[in-house]
Amino acid sequence: MIEQIFFLIFAIIAVGSAVAVVSFRNPVHSVISLLVCFIQMAALFVMLRSPFLAAVQIFVYVGAVLVLFLFVIMMIDIRKASMERFVPGGHFWPVAILIVLVIEMVVIISKSKLEAVLVASPLRLDGSVKEMGEALFSKYILPFEVVSFILLVALLGAIVLGRKELK
C-alpha cells in the first residue's frame, strides 16, 4: 500500500517533469526538469529493488551527463534561445507524430500487464551487485559487448566530428 503511494508520487512527478522539459522555454529550466525526472527514475529503480541501477542512474546521468548539458547550455544566449521555435515550420508534422506515438503507447499498454510493474519485478535480483555482474558477463555478454562497441564507435565518431579540419 505504502509502496504504491510512493510509486504514484514518483511516477507523477517524473511524468510531470518530463512534460516540463519540453514545455519550458528556458533551456536551463528544461535541464532542471530533466534532473528532477532522472532523480524520480532513480527512485523508481530503488522501488524495483535495484539500488545499483539507481545509484548508477544518479552517478552517470545526473552526476555527469546533465552537468555537461548545463555546461553547454550555460554558454547559449538564453534570451535568443528561448525565443526560437523548437520545430521549424508549421504545427502539422509534430502534432501528427505525437498522435501516432500516443496511439502506439495506448496499444502497447493495453496489451501488456500493468500489474507486473505495479507489484514487483519478476526478476528479483535482491539488489546484489554480484548477481547483476554475473548476469551481465555470462548470460548477457553479447548484448553487453555490442553496446560497449556501439559506444566506442560513437566516441570515435564524436572525435572525428569534433576534430579540426586538417589542411
Partner: peptide, 19 residues
C-alpha cells in the same frame, strides 16, 4: 549494499547548486 556508489553519486550532486 551499494553504499560507496551512493556516497560518490550523491556527493557529486551538490555541484548543481554551484552551477
Amino acid at each position: 549494499n551499494v553504499g560507496i556508489l551512493y556516497v560518490l553519486a550523491v556527493a557529486g550532486l551538490s555541484v548543481y547548486g554551484t552551477i
